[in-house]
Amino acid sequence: MNRKYAFFPGCVLDGAAHEARMATEAVAGRIGVELVEIPGWSCCGASQTQDVDPEAALAANARNLALAEKMGLDVLTACSTCALMLRTARQTLMNGRMADVNEALATADLEYKGTAEVSHILWLLADTIQDWAPMVKTPLSKLQVASFYGCHTVRPPKVMGYENHLAPHSMEAIITACGAKPVLIPDRLKCCGFHAVFPAEQTAHRLTASAADNARKNGADCLLTPCPLCHMQLDMYQPDAREDTGKGGETPVLHLTQLVGLALGIEHEKLGLSKHIVSTDALLAKC
């Protein structure tokens, strides 16, 4: 495979979900996808900034898109909320706001014409299974994996729109290509609660506990998510969720690229598998 993207890591891949960045870069390097980080990219607003300053959120993402377009590349991100924020901004610009936002971009000698599009690492991996599946060195045949898509990976479909939002299958196709067995759980398309973990903490904890509990009850060795924010909620807050709800047992949570990396035979250290709150040791013993 020979593809090149303007990489938008998003803040969490440089912070608490650094292991997702490690895994994304390791997998991309292995399958022949060149990721060129967008110089000077800014926070996408994380589905928060627009609640206090909608114009700042739009302006920042228009700038991110303009920076990528200047590189002559489409944007690739490994975060579903970043993807939603960037794609929403692009849609807003394409539907009548291009001229006035470009006036603002001009103050920093930038312009967005609408050529740079935004994709997600999940979609890239699903679209190129035929290219990377033959590179699988370690089929994960002993693993049962419960997918957790994350709201912003599929909703709203008018903005995200990669696949059937009610019955997506990209994650299951990737799990299968890795040699593992997909496990369907009722929480597969539910919210993890991350974006309201402070104002609606109890709700967030119940959602997290439900996903972790259902994965375990359905025989899954782990939850798998293509969104680092879902990962943060399901992994980092899992002990709090367990304590609050009384739902016992630990469920490891993998980033999508960590699973693919394992199947491709990439060393565990390069995938950051030790940087999880819920230990991945039992899971790795099966790989």
Binding site: P39, G40, A56, A59, A60, A104, T107, A108, L110
Partner: peptide, 13 residues
């Protein structure tokens, strides 16, 4: 390019 980002945001505001 932080200065540029600030200019863009302030212009929009």
């Amino acid at each position: 390019g932080l200065d540029g980002l600030r200019k863009i945001i302030r212009y929009r505001r």
